[in-house]
């Protein structure tokens, strides 16, 4: 149930992100989702890609600071109240979330990528409440 996210340290320099997307494109790696946490000087790019190990390797070879982070992908209905219901389950079970970002996949579903203090606990809680989770096999193609 754990999926691999690519985290990249990026200095705030014009063109740095473009350099990165160029390398991924050249290596035929698809980006399914991404978000950037930004501060004044640098950003942390987090993304779900096809073939994360290969992506990490090619980026490292090109001088990027890369790390593979474990995250959970939660599938919720793409309709009003969908996210609210999921978050209620998580917070009422006292699971602390470090960060999350979401993307809609198709007409009726959305995926929320979550990094939590304890991934095991959040997976247990969500499964207990019959929430649908992304499996590693299908995630990189979402």
């Amino acid at each position: 149930m754990i999926i691999k996210q690519l985290s990249v340290f990026l200095e705030n320099k014009t063109g740095r992100l473009t350099e990165l997307t160029g390398i991924l494109a050249d290596n035929d790696i698809n980006i399914s989702a991404f978000s950037i946490a930004d501060t004044a000087d640098y950003g942390i790019l987090r993304m779900i890609v096809g073939r994360p190990e290969l992506a990490a390797e090619v980026l490292k070879n090109n001088g990027f600071t890369v790390k593979i982070t474990d995250v959970v992908g939660m599938i919720i209905p793409h309709s009003p109240g969908g996210l609210h219901k999921a978050l209620q389950i998580i917070s009422s079970n006292n699971v602390a979330i470090d960060y999350m970002y979401a993307f809609a996949s198709g007409e009726c579903k959305a995926t929320v990528v979550i990094r939590a203090e304890s991934l095991k606990k959040i997976i247990d809680v969500l499964q207990e409440h019959k929430m649908e989770l992304l499996r590693e096999g299908d995630v990189y193609q979402v």
Binding site: S7, F9, A37, T39, Y42, V66, K67, T69, D98, R115
Partner: peptide, 15 residues
């Protein structure tokens, strides 16, 4: 320069 092995993807760690 940050040491690669210590790169964390959480802003709170880096800050």
């Amino acid at each position: 320069e940050i040491e690669e092995a210590f790169f964390s993807d959480e802003v709170k760690e880096l800050e």
